[in-house]
Amino acid sequence: MTFQFEAKLPRKLPEALTVYALDKPKVSNASLLDLAKKFGLTGQGKDFISSSDSLGYLEGRWGLEVNRVSGAISYTHLDRYGIETEKAFDLSDARADGVARKFLDRAALFKSGTMKLRRVTHMHGASADLESRKVTEKLLDAGVVYGRLVDDQPVDGPGGFSMVHIDPAAEVVGLRSIWRPLGKRLGKVKIKPPEAAMEGLRKRAEKFRGDTTVVKATFGYFELGPIDSQTSIEPVYAFVYIVRDGEVAMKSAYLAHAGDKTFGTLLGKRRFIPGAQRARRQ
């Protein structure tokens, strides 16, 4: 059994950071229409789709949906997003970034200086026939990922990003964003050195069979995914690790508060309770 850090935390950490409240998103027909206008739609549509967890709006061939809990946005062209076309995607990453930035700037979704390009991802399509097995592969889009910054610190986690989808015609055909509104200051925390967090992870790894490798180690704020409620945003140490045990491997994450005071838990309750199971007859 081995335990090793393949990834390293940043050498320089701030001495203190501010903890902020995250405001509950305001989700209404009016707020959706405002958002639609920011994306270049008319906002004159009448088709709203309401459910307990989201509110949607349709205008022409565009669909816009906002999650009621997190405010996560999904905006897609219903005919063009995720559909293979004759033309393969061939824009450079720099060009895709340019198209995406122009779209975000025009929509003015985020304050200037609060986002940073993290990665240009691609959707790939492939096909092959059973006889020859010759694989034809094609790039279908670019998903340009911008990470959120709070006080110049990166925001990690399943939230805190915006991904703009560009199609082969160099047009925006979708956007996914989890970016909760930043609220008032809740306080300031001194940043603890990372050793205790690293030791906590090492202790967890002692329980595993096989070799543990930390493949990602980050310091920054942390934002949850689309269906989770989050009332504050505070600094954490976040690690993604892999455990290899023969032919079977697993990947998981470990989080620890980086501040000397905490404002919320990092690990939520189980969302979906499986219910008691009676032993099944074999």
Binding site: P158, P226, I227, M250, K251, S252, A253, G268, R271, F272
Partner: peptide, 17 residues
């Protein structure tokens, strides 16, 4: 590999809806 973690555990629900 795919993560087994609370933070990404909502994906089954998000896909299903």
């Amino acid at each position: 590999l795919v993560s087994d973690s609370w933070w990404t555990g909502g994906r089954g629900y998000n896909f299903a809806r």
